[in-house]
Write a protein that binds this DNA or RNA. Structure first.
Length: 567
RNA sequence: GCGCCCGUAGCUCAGAUGGAUAGAGCGCAUGCCUCCGGAGCAUGAGGUCACAGGUUCGAAUCCUGUCGGGCGCACCA
């Protein structure tokens, strides 16, 4: 790589100047007139060397051997930047790398096969998945994919509770609807689940047990109702996720923590830390010892544990299963639990930052500038399925991924439903399809384009150089997005790449600039440009695939399926 | 009251480890292409980076405070 040669040459020069193990940062200047690669190393050394940065830069430029660094020209600019202009071949060689690597271009191995768990969605089976779960599903899936691409062994986990108070409330709600359907005059429980789906569950229950529980108030009967409801709603969530193209390696049940004695183990282990005390009949853990805002109750005065305890037990289970790195993707409304969970785990000797959290803010849907809120079926906000059946899975996933998690997300239905470049998803997909269509026009199978066939030094136009440099940043972009657990960085990159590809393609409009067209008459130039088109196609496809979005070879002008609006 | 997140162009948002005149898309203006009241292309205008201090050769970025918005502060889960 050209970057490595520059880095090595710089290191040699700096050592001669008396700098030991300098940190050399290379970047692509935003302004192309600043060359292909730039470094601010002279600026960052100014203090250490006690010399003006500009003077340091000039000395480096004078000492550096351009041949060894593989560069055509070195300039000192501004306050002391060093700008390198690469040999044309060095710039374009990335095209052959892309063609050679193909499906694996962009992948890396900074993870070295280490294990990491990504826990996401983790909705309790009390109803259909809503938009917050959807954002979480799209984000968690993309984060898991980014980690996989950077060499981590990823485990995707879904955690849920099938007992406890919310489940009791669900069972009581279903039972009330069931009895109402059988003509009995009963009221819904206070704070019960109001959505239409509860009636569906009640209908299904009636179909399966007829009127057996009409007057049966035993806890066994309620348990059966609950079991029926949980099974049905879990199945619905699985369908929702499956159709959203999100999959899990493991579903972890909260009740298993009790069944396997892990909650008791945790109580014992915490008791041994000396941080446990009794107050007002309850058992407390001194989590303030580890930066929590207040101490937390582990066991209530009625003898029942709070949610805190199974949470700790669950994360000890994660650690015990070999996951020393865990990323929990959750809604920001859960941020209050972060400190207490970490504090509890620190009490048991786990490291301070364990586990990591990606907390995402809320989703707001707008149409014609008005907020779209209500779903009768859910009895609250719009469901995930209602959204993606309206705008498509690709668009929904992309919109959830394209903003950084800790910012609020405005989901603009007008943009989502638009089938033009105004819609970023279509813009990227169009660019991919356009590259593919070139091969159709040339009557060449795009798979037949291989590395080493083209004279890439013929890619001399500014738009070509910029596009090639853009493609070369794909691996670093993935690495950075993975490191920051931020899929939106990849979305930004793909939009920029699509824009650069579009500019290049349109500049060669045969009716205006036939000499810039991909399919020019000169066979050598044509071969080089076809190689570039193929490289663009590979990068866009790999990026979209990573995000779980289709990379179509041609765009079919489709009207979204006219689904029955859920009324 | 305390804690977490956010505040960048008319709108929606990028700006990793502090670095060169703060970027993109939409919208707007002008020009071009086109069979088209559609789609596309090119160029341009548009910013006290919420505010005030501080650190630094250099701050949208780091620190402190203020203001505004969201969320959370149970012996609920």
């Amino acid at each position: 790589m050209a970057h490595d040669a520059i880095r090595d040459a710089l290191a040699v020069v700096l050592r001669d100047m008396g700098v030991q193990s300098p940190e050399i940062q290379l970047e692509r200047p935003r302004d192309p007139t600043h060359g292909d690669v730039a470094t601010n190393v002279a600026l960052s050394l100014a203090r250490q060397l006690k010399r003006p940065p500009r003077e340091i830069a000039e000395e480096i430029a004078k000492r550096l051997d351009p041949v060894a660094a593989g560069v055509e020209a070195i300039d000192v600019a501004g306050p002391g930047f060093l700008n390198f202009r690469l040999n044309p071949g060095a710039v374009a060689s990335v095209v052959d790398q892309i063609l050679g690597a193909n499906e694996s271009y962009g992948s890396g191995d900074v993870g070295h096969g280490r294990r990491v768990m990504v826990e996401f969605v983790s909705a309790n089976p009390t109803g259909p998945l809503h938009l917050g779960h959807g954002r979480q599903a799209a984000l968690g899936d993309a984060i898991a994919a980014l980690l996989t691409w950077t060499g981590w062994a990823v485990h995707r986990e879904y955690y849920y509770n099938d007992s406890g108070r919310q489940m009791e409330l669900l069972a009581e709600s279903v039972r009330a609807r069931y009895r109402q359907a059988l003509g009995k005059d009963v009221e819904m429980p206070a704070e019960g689940y109001q959505g239409e789906y509860v009636k569906d569950v009640a209908d299904s229950l009636q179909g399966s047990v007829n009127d057996r529980y009409l007057d049966d108030d035993t806890s066994e009967a309620l348990d059966s109702v609950r079991t029926h409801a949980v099974a049905m709603l879990r199945a619905e969530q699985d369908r929702d996720l499956n159709d959203f193209r999100v999959y899990f390696d493991e579903y972890f049940l909260e009740s298993s923590l009790y069944d396997q004695g892990l909650v008791d183990d945790t109580i014992r282990a915490l008791g041994d830390t000396g941080l446990v005390y009794e107050l007002d009949g309850a058992t407390w853990l001194r989590t303030t010892e580890f930066g929590d805002q207040k101490d937390r109750v582990m066991v209530r005065s009625n003898g029942h544990p709070t949610y805190f305890l199974p949470d700790i037990a669950y994360h000890m289970s994660k650690w015990g299963r070999g996951f020393e790195r865990v990323i929990n993707v959750q809604g920001a409304d859960h941020h209050g639990t972060v400190d207490r969970v970490r504090a509890g785990l620190q009490a048991l000797g786990r490291p301070p930052g364990y586990p990591e959290y990606v907390l995402h803010q809320m989703v707001r849907v707008e149409k014609d500038g008005e907020e779209v809120k209500f779903s009768k079926r859910a009895g609250s906000g719009m469901t995930l399925r209602e959204l993606y059946e309206q705008v498509g899975v690709d668009v929904t996933r992309y919109f959830f991924q394209m903003r950084k998690p800790d910012a609020h997300l405005l989901f603009d239905l007008d943009v989502a439903l638009d089938h033009s470049d105004k819609n970023p998803v279509y813009k990227v997909q169009y660019a991919h399809a356009r590259m593919c269509s070139i091969f159709g026009k040339a009557e060449i199978d795009l798979e037949a384009i291989a590395a080493g066939q083209a004279d890439l030094t013929l890619l001399t136009h500014d738009l070509e150089r910029e596009l090639v440099k853009q493609l070369g940043e794909f691996p670093a972009t993935i690495e950075r997005a993975a490191e920051h657990t931020s899929p939106h960085m990849l979305c930004d990159y793909l939009e920029q790449t699509a824009g650069a590809a579009n500019s290049w393609y349109h500049a060669g409009n045969p009716s205006r600039n036939p000499e810039l067209a991909v399919l020019v008459s000169d066979p050598a130039v044509r071969t080089a440009r076809l190689a570039l088109a193929r490289a663009v196609q590979i990068v866009l496809r790999n990026g979209l695939t990573l995000l779980g979005i289709e990379a179509p070879r041609r765009m079919i002008r489709e009207v979204p399926d006219d689904h029955e609006p859920e009324q």
